[in-house]
Design a binder for these strands. Structure first.
Lengths: 134, 134
DNA sequence: GTTTGTGGTAACCGATGGGAAACCGCTCCA
DNA sequence: TGGAGCGGTTTCCCATCGGTTACCACAAAC
């Protein structure tokens, strides 16, 4: 039995685009960061702001973001102990990215509204143009 | 056999964050958009700028981005026929997002360099702080 | 006449992802 | 005595994702 050699690198490593995207990868990741952008929150607080996320995924995201130095996890000496998650400096750097994403998302929503007003049935027509002359 | 009802919506739909992230989802998606940001390119040109992407995935991404109105696909009447991909207005709107991502990626790289200079062995230490007093 | 380049598609297949549900110890409160 | 809330973990399972390989037609170039 010989180990299969991976013919293509999983990530171009040198690329800053892929480097940052690994921080944002995975379901709910931007939402979790966004939820912490207004200040530190506890597990159940984040969960309440993101009602559709499952505990497992939220737990996994928080762990990953911690190991990637995007946020810190602080166990408070209370009874019962509570845990607080807060963005690091690196996490704060991601806020402009997410803000930019939200902006495009909003403009996307406005496009849809306008498309609906205009009639809507051809709003989703394929964008392909066939046989344009060169 | 009863169809399982999806108890949780796959996307919070109203959220502009998720709305925009669906445009960026999937391996290589930001890279492909980035590759087209400097002007229209043909299939094989994009492939050359992204040597590690497979034809299948590039093809899939281009199709998806077309149906999502991020780019247009134009078949040129040449021999042999060539196909040109270009960003739409919506695609152009994504450029600032990707630029922001690249910026964080670069700063990430600088952090790594600094961490290596400082000694590096503890650069990857867990960020958890235990037992902080409330 | 074989290779190169053009722009893909189809089948296969292992890895990963994420949802659902069950479960955990602990403490406060009724 | 028994919830309810805290902050998760574990297991199961299915869907999807993405890489690999093979293949297509056509034309120009070597």
């Amino acid at each position: 039995m010989v180990l299969k050699v991976r013919a293509k690198a999983p990530a171009p490593s040198g690329c800053p685009l892929s480097a940052c995207m690994t921080l944002l990868r995975g379901a709910w990741t931007p939402e979790v960061i966004w939820s912490l952008s207004s200040g530190p929150r506890r597990f159940s607080e984040v969960r309440r702001t993101l009602p559709a996320i499952s505990a497992k995924v939220l737990s996994a995201r928080l762990r990953e973001l911690e190991t990637r130095c995007v946020l810190t996890r602080t166990v408070m000496q209370t009874r019962p102990p509570t845990v607080e998650y807060a963005l690091t400096d690196l996490g704060q750097e991601l806020i402009p990215v997410i803000r930019a994403i939200v902006e495009v998302g909003s403009s996307l929503h406005q496009r849809e509204v306008q498309a609906l007003r205009k009639g809507g049935s051809d709003a989703r027509a394929p964008a392909t143009v066939d046989y344009e002359h060169a």
